[in-house]
Every structure is written in C-alpha cells, then in structure tokens.
C-alpha cells in the first residue's frame, strides 16, 4: 500500500538527515561560515557609530540568509550523485512528498544553524536577550519555514544546471526579501524591549508569507521535475 504524503515525506527527511549526520561536511561548512561571518561583522563594527541593538538584527539575518543558502545548495546534490533522484521519482509516492521531505530536512538543518548563530550574535553584541530568547527563536523558525520552502524549490530547479551555485541565490534572494525584512523588523522591536504585541503585525506578515510560499512551492515542485 502506498505510504501517505506525510509518512513518505518523513522517510525522505529522515534519509537526508541520516546522510548529513554520517558525513557532517555540509553542516560543519555552514557553521564555520556563519561563525566567521558574525566575527567579521563584529570586528568591522564601530561601536561608537552604531549601537549594538541597531546592528545585531541585521547581522543575524544577513548571516542566517547566506548560511541558509549555502545549506540549501547541498539539498539536491545528494540526489544527483548516482541518479538517486530517479529512485524517488519511480516510487509510488506523491512528488509533493519529495518536496516536503527535503524541506523538512532543510528546516531542521537550518534550525541547527540557528541554535549556534543566535547565541553567537547575542554574546558578541552583548544583547539583552533574557526573556526574548524563546520568542526570538520562534520568529527565526517562522522565517526559516518561508526561506526553506523557496530555497528548496529553487535548489531543485538549479541542481541540474551548470550554474547551480549562482542560480540558487539569484532566484531565491528576491523572494527572501519580504521574509528577511519582516524577521529583522520583529527582531529589532523585541531587542529594543518593545512589547510582543507591537511586533505582531510583522509576525503576521511572516506567517502569511510562510503559508503562501509553502503552498505555492509544494504545488509547483512536481512540474519542475519534468524532464
């Protein structure tokens, strides 16, 4: 009997995570990139000109966006080696399940990066996180859903091309703008000690983009697999 959409997606996500856990190369590379990026921003920062609380949200989201892009590059690379993708396409599962599985694995991967980048930024810029930390993580995760949905779709599109490394950021970044903008605004407000209610309109925008991107990318994915 054909496995359900979510179960098939879980099998694919679990497989991707197992591969990453065994090799660890992509995660380590992205992590090193993120930490080095945060450190570079820190050393280039003139504390007398810009307050930490004004700069940190931008640093966090720039680093997170580019780390995310770097991690998404590898998503379909693993399927191209030895044409493993063919085995997924042959299986009697919905093609949407392939997308959701890949996106879920990417989301968990990106969440792993968040766990390191958020405290790193907080530590270097001496941010008064305190009670805002859980909310900050929640916002980052909400934003990550939209980024990962778009990035996974474009990663699949770019994977078969010679210019994959160039195409993925070129295609993804314009779609990332509203998410990164909303996430950076929310982060700024929370770090400035404003009430969560004030940041709520931006959070609603983030959630709306998540829903739109996740639905649109899931439905579009089967068509980009056509050879």
């Amino acid at each position: 009997m054909k496995p359900s959409l979510l179960l098939s997606a879980w099998f694919i996500a679990r497989k991707d995570l197992a591969i990453e856990f065994r090799t660890r190369t992509a995660f380590l590379a992205v992590l090193v990139f993120a930490v080095l990026g945060i450190a570079t921003f820190y050393f280039a920062w003139d504390a007398t000109a810009v307050a930490a609380i004004d700069l940190a949200p931008g640093v966090l989201w720039v680093i997170f966006t580019f780390s995310g892009l770097l991690s998404l590059q590898r998503s379909f690379g693993v399927e191209l080696a030895d044409r493993a993708m063919d085995a997924l396409l042959l299986a009697p599962i919905d093609r949407e399940a392939i997308f959701l599985g890949k996106a879920l694995a990417n989301l968990l991967f990106v969440a792993g990066i968040l766990v390191v980048t958020v405290p790193s930024v907080a530590l270097l810029y001496n941010l008064p996180l305190g009670r805002t930390l859980p909310i900050l993580f929640a916002i980052a995760l909400i934003a990550a859903i939209g980024l990962v949905a778009v990035g996974t779709l474009f990663s699949a599109m770019a994977a078969n091309t010679r210019l994959a490394e160039l195409l993925l950021p070129m295609l993804s970044l314009p779609f990332f703008v509203p998410i990164v903008y909303g996430a950076a605004q929310t982060t700024s407000m929370l770090l400035a000690g404003r009430p969560v209610a004030e940041a709520w309109p931006f959070m609603k925008i983030l959630i709306a983009f998540d829903l739109v991107f996740l639905t649109a990318c899931t439905l579009t994915f089967p068509y980009i697999l056509e050879e």
Partner: peptide, 24 residues
C-alpha cells in the same frame, strides 16, 4: 539502471529498506 541510484553515505540495508518503505 547502470547508475546505482543508491546513497553512498547510507548502509546497504538502509538503502534497500528506504525503497521498501517508499513502496509501502
């Protein structure tokens, strides 16, 4: 196919089991 369609980082059992699960 003449290409293996397998995941090199996974074990033999994991590869075949994954196929079995995807085929229900």
């Amino acid at each position: 196919s003449h290409q293996s369609m397998l995941y090199g980082a996974l074990t033999v059992r994991e590869n075949v089991e994954l196929a079995a699960r995807l085929y229900g």
